[in-house]
């Protein structure tokens, strides 16, 4: 059991410890962290029909920090990320076991009784390939607000401008907000998708290899953007780039074959990993 950053004192003071079952908090929690928690994955397993893609994952997600999921292709990073917004519920035959507790609500969001749409209203997601809607730039960003019943034009216009500025896209698009989003470059489209995700103020932001379809310059812009956002949101990012994980994350989780091999602070994982498999992977001798 990796317990690199287990610190019983700070852990007890954490919001998680206060919010949850004291017997769990008293000692046996793996992967505890000293930061306030936004979510806590506890004993999560996941099946695509008969195939078990996640095996008993324990993973804390810190508030206002970036948590990176790394590991070889096919190890289950996307599968895990897509549990946080119940994306798997869109397809038949998928099954969760265990918990993802969202805090401070202290609610298990993978519970069958919880409406996945309610979960997605709280957790926004950005995908590997930019996927703007076939609408104008403005309407793309506004869509998350509109589907939440917000009608006031001034409110919508104000928020659209605000998040386009946050996403460092405003200056590039302010004169053509009513043009199709498909007229933008791939990197701009991805920043648009990030703005679209930010607009309704999600509690949790999920990024699935958001830069893997982009060139280095566009990638650098997105990373810069994530660095700006990370002080305000809880972010979980899947990445295949070790440099990216090292640059932007506060915590890092290394996965292998559906299991969480090691979790720790950025520093621990990248300078003194406990597990040999982690070390092999981050130094490129693996996978």
């Amino acid at each position: 059991m990796p317990e690199a950053i287990m610190n019983q004192e700070t852990y007890r003071q954490s919001e998680f410890a206060r919010a949850s079952d004291p017997s769990v908090a008293a000692g046996s929690r793996p992967n505890a962290i000293s930061d306030t928690l936004k979510a806590d994955v506890r004993g999560l397993s996941f099946w695509y029909d008969q195939f078990q893609a996640l095996k008993n994952i324990d993973l804390p997600i810190a508030e206002k920090k970036v948590t990176a999921l790394i590991g070889a292709s096919g190890c289950g990073k996307s599968t895990l990320l897509r549990c946080f917004n119940r994306m798997h519920d869109l397809y038949p035959g998928n099954r969760y076991d265990g918990e993802i507790v969202l805090l401070p609500e202290n609610q298990n969001i993978v519970d069958k009784g919880i409406d996945p749409i309610r979960v997605r209203l709280k957790a926004g997601m950005v995908f590997q390939k930019p996927n703007p809607f076939p609408k104008s730039i403005f309407e793309n960003v506004a869509s998350g607000l509109r589907v939440r019943g917000i009608r006031d034009r001034a409110v919508i216009a104000g928020r659209v401008e605000e998040v386009l500025r946050e996403a460092a896209l405003w200056d590039e698009v302010k004169d053509r907000l009513d043009q199709s989003a498909y007229a933008l470059s791939g990197g701009q489209q991805q920043r648009l998708c990030i703005a679209r995700t930010l607009a309704p103020e999600p509690e949790l932001i999920l990024l699935d290899e958001p830069t893997s379809a982009l060139d280095p310059i566009a990638t650098a812009k997105i990373e810069e953007l994530i660095e700006k956002l990370r002080d305000h949101y809880a972010i979980v990012i899947v990445t295949h780039s070790m440099q990216q994980a090292a640059r932007i994350s506060a915590y890092c989780a290394f996965m292998h074959l559906g299991q969480l091999v090691e979790f720790g602070t950025n520093e621990t994982i990248f300078t003194s990993p406990k597990e040999k498999r982690t070390q092999d992977y981050i130094t490129g001798r693996f996978g």
Partner: peptide, 11 residues
């Protein structure tokens, strides 16, 4: 990917 994008926004 468009469908997933829509659902991911809580639609």
């Amino acid at each position: 990917s468009l469908r997933e994008g829509a659902y991911a926004l809580g639609m």
